[in-house]
Design a binder for these strands. Structure first.
Length: 300
DNA sequence: TGCCAGGCGGACA
DNA sequence: TGTCCGCATGGC
């Protein structure tokens, strides 16, 4: 079995990434072990299945399966670096955290090394937003599993099944009645199919969005898509394109974490959250990610 | 049982 | 422009 070593930058905790990945939900995209996580990935040249674990100065990435030939190392390395946000200099973020007011600094500082855990594509991130809108996460992951099992490739490696996420072309051809039968609402079915058609037809792509000048402009562009509101646009940019300044305002988890952190019973308004994120210019999305992280109970 | 979940779009004032 | 409502279903 081939091993690829992916260098770790300063301020990176694989343990924190694992803590996030293993936070108690049955995500069909990941096969979680005690100290490693495995997933399937797809590139232009084909698919691969990898298993990632921690090493002294690098991540150890075991290639369990690959159709990528000589591209394997480059594709796998790129995938892992995007997944765990390894190319970002976290120095400015550390400085902002250390200069933040209490109680934020006290809660965030021990987490430094926690990096954004991204999704493999903007399409998957936006589709996940639609799936998860206004339902509890456990049910949302169940819907994601049903969609993946029905519309995505699955790879059988060493007796285990690894699911990819459906390609836009596959979901673009889905029948709304079939999605409804999976317990998506008709509205979400229509949103998903519409989103998939935009990606399939090239009217929407990571390249097109990345060409826009800044995150607010990207949010405006994504909000023109039916089913993508401000929350989904920002969440999709944060998780799908690693936009560190994208904040999904209105997120119920952010409100809950804010209330818990400040010991308040009053639900924060938009202005409260804007004030919370103000000390982190350019890193508001990272602050949101850390704020979500405070909701996780200590590891058992 | 009732309320809330990692919201959204449309109707209406 | 701001507010309310229906959508779907599970978890607590």
């Amino acid at each position: 079995m081939r091993r690829i070593r992916v260098a770790k930058p300063p301020l990176f905790s694989f343990g924190e990434a694992m803590r996030y990945t293993t936070r108690g939900f049955d995500d069909p995209r990941y096969r979680v072990h005690a100290d490693s996580v495995a997933t399937a990935l797809e590139a232009a040249g084909g698919t691969a299945v990898i298993r990632v674990s921690d090493g002294d100065d690098a991540l150890d990435v075991w290639v369990l399966h690959s159709e990528l030939g000589t591209d394997t190392e480059a594709v796998v390395t790129g995938h892992v670096r995007r997944w765990f946000d390894l190319d970002r200099d976290l120095g400015p973020w550390r400085d902002l955290v250390l200069g933040a007011p209490a109680p934020v600094r006290d809660v965030f500082e021990p987490l430094l090394g926690f990096r954004l855990v991204a999704l493999p594509s903007l399409f998957e991130a936006l589709a996940w937003c639609i799936i998860g809108q206004q339902i509890n996460l456990a049910f949302a992951y169940r819907l994601k599993r049903r969609l993946s099992e029905r519309y995505a490739r699955r790879l059988l490696v060493d007796g285990h099944t690894y699911h990819l996420f459906p390609e836009p072309a596959a979901l673009a051809h889905a029948a709304r009645e079939d999605l409804r039968a999976m317990q998506l609402s008709y509205r979400k079915a229509d949103y998903l199919i519409g989103l998939a058609r935009l990606f399939r037809d090239g009217e929407l792509s990571e390249e097109r969005i990345n060409r826009l000048v800044d995150t607010p402009t990207m949010i405006d562009a994504l909000r023109r898509i039916r089913g993508i509101g401000e929350w989904s646009a920002a969440y999709g940019l944060l998780k799908g394109l690693s936009r560190a300044d994208a904040v999904p305002f209105g997120d119920s988890g952010l409100r809950a974490a804010y209330m818990q952190l400040h010991g308040r019973e009053r639900v924060p308004g938009r202005s409260d959250l804007e004030a919370f994120f103000a000390p982190f210019p350019g890193w508001e999305g990272y602050a949101a990610f850390y704020l979500w992280r405070t909701l996780l109970k200590p590891s058992p």
